[in-house]
């Protein structure tokens, strides 16, 4: 039970950018639509793996999922784009100073709906989203084997987003609109639950026990939906996604049309 990463978490110590978790796994999300077929998937990619493995991976994926071969380049491209984005940050440095933030889970996997939130030291290189997700599913007695990886990916996505934001502090202008919107959601939660700022944390008076009335907030809620409910939820998700996409397109168009001028 020794933690080799202990040394790394010295205050104000800087490390080169990576996922703030024990394993340097990057969350990758696929959301493709081609020929009326949709592909949605989320998984993690080890940043230490060489990029040329993407092509074999995508080929294999296409084969395993019985997708038309035309999907393959798209998949590879999407993965490559997301990896390249990650690589572009790698040259920069990030702090490993403790920073506890609320991570919110709000996801549906097949017919399991999970809402949860908890505090996470977003700069701790020893954190283990996969282990946490596994434990959560075990504790909640969730049978669906897809849930735990999905939770882990969801956590990783948020960690990644936060890490990117932390890099970008001070260069606010370069944050894309999307990130800003996500950050807005985050801020909302921060203000609402008064994110527990370790710097304000008064060791002498505060206890490690959360206030009783907040217990509910940090309790996971799991719903097992029926097929019908899943259907309805899916429709709603689709609608929201469409709206969001349209909005983004509009934003992008706006940006490309007017900001560049």
């Amino acid at each position: 039970m020794s933690y080799k990463g202990a040394v790394a978490s010295a205050p104000r110590e800087l490390v080169s950018f990576r996922m703030p978790t024990e394993l340097n796994l990057i969350p990758i999300r696929l959301d493709l639509e081609f020929d009326g077929r949709k592909l949605k998937d989320a998984f993690t990619w080890n940043a230490d793996d060489p990029d040329y493995e993407i092509v074999p991976f995508s080929k294999r994926m296409v084969k395993d999922l019985n997708l038309p071969a035309v999907f393959q380049p798209y998949i590879a491209q999407v993965i490559q784009t997301q990896l390249t984005e990650f690589r572009s940050f790698e040259g920069q440095e990030m702090s490993t100073e403790e920073r506890v933030q609320t991570i919110r889970l709000d996801l549906r996997v097949n017919n399991t709906l999970i809402h949860d939130q908890f505090l996470w030291d977003v700069n701790n290189l020893k954190s283990d989203p996969e282990g946490f997700a596994r434990g959560l599913c075990k504790d909640l007695d969730i049978k669906d084997p897809e849930v735990a990886p999905a939770i882990a990916v969801a956590i990783r996505e948020q960690l990644y987003e936060i890490a990117k934001q932390n890099l970008a502090t001070g260069r606010e202008t370069r944050i894309s609109k999307k990130a800003r919107r996500d950050k807005g959601a985050m801020d909302f939660f921060q203000s609402r639950f008064a994110t527990w700022n370790p710097l304000v944390f008064d060791v002498t008076t505060t206890t490690g026990t959360e206030r009783r009335n907040e217990w509910d907030l940090f309790e996971p809620v799991v719903e097992i939906l029926s097929e019908k409910e899943v259907e309805a939820l899916y429709m709603r998700e689709e609608r929201n996604a469409r709206l969001k996409k349209r909005q983004e397109e509009k934003d992008d168009a706006f940006m490309s049309r007017y900001v560049r001028v």
Binding site: E98, W120, D121, N124, K126, F132, L140, E210, D216, F218
Partner: peptide
């Protein structure tokens, strides 16, 4: 752990 987690403040990883 999930039960305890909500009653304690702090990084869930350390808690775990």
């Amino acid at each position: 752990f999930t039960e305890v987690r909500r009653m304690l403040i702090g990084d869930v990883n350390s808690l775990q």
